[in-house]
Amino acid sequence: MAHNGLLIQYDWCTGCHACEVACKQEHNFSEGMVGIKVDEVVSTAPDKVYVDYMPYTTRFCDLCTERTKSGEQPACVKHCQATCITYGTITELAKLMEKQPRSSIFAPK
């Protein structure tokens, strides 16, 4: 069976946190539990300060088993306001990744 995962083009993540709340709603997670998180990353070059966001899955990500069984996208993928998360097989995602710099693949399961 093909292994599925998430390709996240992190360069587009604006830090809006929609993925986190989408995940919490989908799984009805209590405080402290969430399947995806976003951190702010600040870097300082001599002439410029850069602000980026880094989304990553956690141990609680189940790739929305219930949703994907019925053909729906995972909750974070659907609601990402920057549309920077793709769900698919790791093989497909790896191919996509070649064309999409500044991205990462997560295989939570």
């Binding site: 809006c16 946190h17 929609a18 989408a22 709603q25 989908e26 659907k78 609601h79 990402c80 306001q81």
Partner: peptide
């Protein structure tokens, strides 16, 4: 739960954190 409507041209399926927390 409340989700975005993919067929709506305004948000095209997406929804913000506040919209996704409506049931709470």
């Amino acid at each position: 739960r409340v989700e975005g409507d993919k067929n709506h041209p305004f948000n095209q399926g997406r929804l913000c954190a506040k919209g996704l927390a409506i049931s709470q």
